[in-house]
């Protein structure tokens, strides 16, 4: 019984470390300035890099295996306007924010993210 309690204490400590370091990671990634360069990654390849501060309003269509995603740029914001996928999680993410996570469309292998910061992982990669 004593062994089980010790083991449980170790696991509780491990869980606490995971939780706290995750919260720290979220806080740090939210504080990092992101700049204004955004990249669009389709199926692992960067298909375009945009500077949102100088980009005119327009729509970009990206196709993956016949399924289309429409990315919209509006007043220096970028968001997923339409996606031919079952869940539409990427559309619900809304505008890409400097503080938040990248916009990800898992079914269509599409990612929109800030090149530096904003949930960026270049340091880890």
């Amino acid at each position: 019984m004593k062994n089980k309690n010790t083991a449980a204490a170790v696991v509780i400590a491990a869980a606490a470390v995971i939780l706290l370091s995750s919260i720290a990671a979220v806080v740090i990634s939210r504080r990092k300035p992101a700049g204004s360069t955004v990249e669009i990654i389709s199926d692992g390849k960067v298909i375009c890099t945009l500077d949102l501060s100088s980009e005119p309003d327009r729509e970009i269509t990206v196709e993956y295996k016949g399924r289309k995603n429409i990315i919209a740029i509006e007043n220096g914001d970028i968001y997923m306007k339409e996606a031919e996928c079952p869940d539409h999680t990427c559309m619900k993410t809304g505008r890409l924010s400097e503080a938040g996570v990248p916009i990800v469309c898992l079914p269509n292998h599409l990612i929109i993210r800030y090149k530096n910061g904003g949930g960026d992982t270049d340091a880890a990669a």
Binding site: S22, A25, V26, S29, V104, I111, G118, G119
Partner: peptide
């Protein structure tokens, strides 16, 4: 799996959020 499927590490940005929700 997401890293393997998407062929990019960009999705790791979600990991801390997922860990918190997982707890």
């Amino acid at each position: 799996a997401a890293v393997a499927v998407m062929k990019t590490t960009a999705v790791i940005g979600y990991l801390p959020y997922l860990m918190i929700s997982g707890c």
